[in-house]
Design a protein around this nucleic acid. Structure first.
Lengths: 180, 180
DNA sequence: AGGCTAACCCTCCACAAGGGAATGTCAAGT
DNA sequence: ACTTGACATTCCCTTGTGGAGGGTTAGCCT
């Protein structure tokens, strides 16, 4: 009875959420997501624009006049705010993770040790770089009172995740079989 | 230059990978994925059957005669083995993570503390349960020499991930604002 | 033995989401 | 004016999800 199709998906909700802080164009929203949430809620530009059109069609967001370069500033409408308010009170769904490295690892018996070791090493350096970024961000935001503690918690999840990943990588049998 | 479209996607590759251990029907493959890899590479049954048909169409897998209940046992062909061998030597793509809880958290300033605390608590008990499952599996497999160490490493990733998640949850400001 | 039932096993379909190519637009420098 | 490059959006194809539906068989019941 309730809703067979939930009113909003998480991407739409996130867009409406950002629009609560003021009007923005699709491009600006994409930038905003990339700056923060993107690591744990990946979006592509085509997806954002599509969802914006959907939101507009449902009257949850409204586009202003086209500005330079076809840019269209969107803002939340009253119904949009109410839909968002309902969404955020819903139980968040279970997370969804796809890690191609683990698929490769599962079948690694068909792969020579040095190639696998290379893959592992690439991932290691990649995750190390990201951990550094998060730590820099967290340190910078450390004294900043204006940052929402919950937003800060998201960054801290990033740190916890990367540390766990790096720790696991270090203990990997494949990590010990150094390439070359 | 090389391939604009990669020859196989990870789902197809995983199916071919399992078929290397012997012929199997779609149903059996689904079971096999669910038993292990599914946490980090989700598949749906309709998707599996579709990919099997694709693989068959490309000559990478071959279906035997229909057995009881329409079951069709697939096996890898020579070209299938070669395609898999090429795939597994490719650099695994970046992981893709979607955690709705973090989206909710990002916008939690629009949410009352006790509802958020409930969400956090639900996630906590859920991840705790999963951690227990993985640990039981790892303990059971502990002495089993027949298990590929790389496959075991995948399970260990699950443990590391759940532990990190639980640790992070425990430190969350929202976790201290107990509901009710 | 014959029939009922529940679990199997697969197909089909429709739609949501993902990602990259293609298109168009403007700003700024020459 | 002309070129260049960043900006902003759209288009389209592939991948992923979910459910309805239909034939099949094992096992149980009488």
């Amino acid at each position: 009875m309730a809703e067979s199709t939930p009113e909003l998906n998480a991407t739409q909700a996130a867009l409406l959420g950002f629009l609560h802080d003021g009007p923005a164009t699709g491009w600006e929203l994409i930038e905003e997501v990339r700056r923060g949430l993107a690591r744990f809620w990946n979006v592509t530009s085509s997806h954002v624009y599509r969802e914006l059109r959907t939101l507009e069609g449902r009257g949850l967001a409204r586009a202003g006049a086209r500005g330079p370069r076809e840019r269209r500033p969107f803002s939340v409408t009253g119904p949009g705010r109410r839909a968002f308010a309902r969404w955020i009170r819903e139980e968040p769904a279970h997370e969804q993770i796809r890690i191609p490295l683990l698929v490769t690892l599962w079948f690694a018996k068909h792969l020579d040790a040095s190639t696998l070791a290379q893959f592992v090493e690439h991932h290691r350096s990649d995750h190390e770089r990201r951990l550094t970024e998060y730590q820099a961000f967290a340190a910078g935001a450390g004294g900043d009172e204006s940052i929402d503690p919950n937003v800060r918690a998201v960054v801290e999840f990033g740190i916890a995740y990367e540390e766990a990943f790096l720790g696991w990588l270090a203990g990997l049998p494949a990590a010990r079989a150094t390439a070359g």
